[in-house]
Design a protein around this nucleic acid. Sequence first.
DNA 1: CCTGCTTCTATAAGCAGGTGATATAAATTC
DNA 2: GAATTTATATCACCTGCTTATAGAAGCAGG
Lengths: 150, 150
Amino acid sequence: MQQTALIPVEDAAVAAGFERFFETLRRITPREELSLTAASTLRRLERSGPYRLCELYAPEGVSQPAMTQLVTRLEKEGLAERRSDPADGRAVVVSITEAGRAAVARRREGRVQALSGLLQDLTPAEHAALVAALPALERLGDLVAEQPTT
Amino acid sequence: MQQTALIPVEDAAVAAGFERFFETLRRITPREELSLTAASTLRRLERSGPYRLCELYAPEGVSQPAMTQLVTRLEKEGLAERRSDPADGRAVVVSITEAGRAAVARRREGRVQALSGLLQDLTPAEHAALVAALPALERLGDLVAEQPTT
DNA sequence: CCTGCTTCTATAAGCAGGTGATATAAATTC
DNA sequence: GAATTTATATCACCTGCTTATAGAAGCAGG
């Protein structure tokens, strides 16, 4: 009952920090070549294999028409491909291509470059704190991924 | 000379972790009411007082016309206001309104709500690691903010 | 003071990527 | 096998960005 009021003050600080950090990450994210949704979708396809289109749009937080269009664009650029599902004639199975993997790698590399300069300006203690927090960040990612459909 | 090759393996792991975490944050970011740029600009106006329009667009990473349009929209919604600079007849000074502060607060609150549930599912050690990393995240934000204009 | 350059903001035209409503085809149910 | 549900595509429209350009205000030098 009191649960709703029981959000620790500390969590508010974490949320504020993340809010700021989100903008930081947005700034160092390469903008050319891929939109945010396109990049995120490609990484998902890379991480966890082919998806049916209907399984893809909800976790990416866009509508089904948006995903259809995105896949069409990715296909046109050779970064992903559609195949029909032999088991279900209605379905379309989307997978990443080699060129798609390369694009993801380029983007990742760009971020590494942008970050590496910054990381060198941190104190060793700050750097260590970041590395120590990585598993927790990953856990948060897993938790969000398995959420109903916020 | 070898500097370019001297990016520690660890930094690549940090970059990969951030890449994933960026998508996590994007997912729990409220989408209604404010676009990403609009939210970021409003928070900037809240954080560090009024800005001339010409000082505002570069750090937000958009073109000058985009910022003019954004300010027009924000003004129409009552979240920000234009005033002319008495010292420079060409300039426009943009500041956040009370309604704007309220919108920022609502958004922040939404993020706190979305996060608090997740944070409770972390182990105490993970939670502590996050809190310990907050200053480093803030430092990164400062470093990016003072960057030339990437 | 004007003339011409620079700076600051606004406008216009166009594109990318999103939405809801709706069509169509395949699968499923009764 | 007719009716319903599910998966994808298409349509019309909106938002927010881009580049190119215009217009107004400041700041020289002659």
